[in-house]
Amino acid sequence: MPEIKVKFYALLRSKVGRDEMTVTASRLKDVMNVLKRDLGPEAVKVISSCHVYINQDNVAFLKGERTSLKEGDVVHILPPTGGG
């Protein structure tokens, strides 16, 4: 199974207690399952309001959690942010 780097941003970092972790997964759904298993419920709640990108693509425009992953992919989990 491919090794995938998962990166956390903004408020999620303090909930998770780290900036990134590595998981082995072949679909985004597997990554989410690992996160559900390994992180606290608060972090999981925040993740459900996050944008998720694989490398530079928003998975909402790929196949959502069914999107496949390959070795070296980076999953970015980004809480709501604003600016302008």
């Binding site: 941003y9 903004a10 970015h76 980004l78 942010t81 604003g82 600016g83 302008g84």
Partner: peptide, 8 residues
């Protein structure tokens, strides 16, 4: 702040 957008 607005800098919160940089990563996204």
């Amino acid at each position: 702040g607005t800098a919160g957008l940089v990563n996204k």
